[in-house]
Amino acid sequence: MTEPIDLTLDVNGRSYQVRVEPRRTLADTLRDDCGLTGTHLGCEHGVCGACTVLADGLPVRSCLMFAVQCEGMELRTVEGLAEDGRLHPMQQAFWENHGLQCGFCTPGFLMLAVGYLEQHPDPDEEELRAVLSSNLCRCTGYQNILKAVRQAAADMRR
């Protein structure tokens, strides 16, 4: 049906009732219908990764999924990382290592790195660089992002 559909999305452990057209992407739904604007859109064709969120624990491009596909999935966005006002170790590490400048790519990188490290707590350097090459950053030159993720990996293992 092209008509709007009522959906229930589970985002960051909270249930969101939304009414969206089938063509509305997950990214637009999170941003415009759930009000979770921390997930950003940088290209809308799956290259830049600014819209990366976790779906059932795995990093995905939310610009390449439709919201109607996501009922029943556990979705996590950048808004769900900090707990009780305490930054997630990945957020803390990005801060401490100057892993962001304008901050636009940051939510996507955070979700990519968190999603990956939760599955692979002790990645080797080559693997980590390959995974972090999934997303684009225009400001930092990546070096501090890599440092931050290395530090967070160690912190998350503790």
Binding site: G38, E79, L81, F94, W95, L100
Partner: peptide
Amino acid sequence: DPPLLTGEG
């Protein structure tokens, strides 16, 4: 940084 890290930018 803090707002940019938490999606509150």
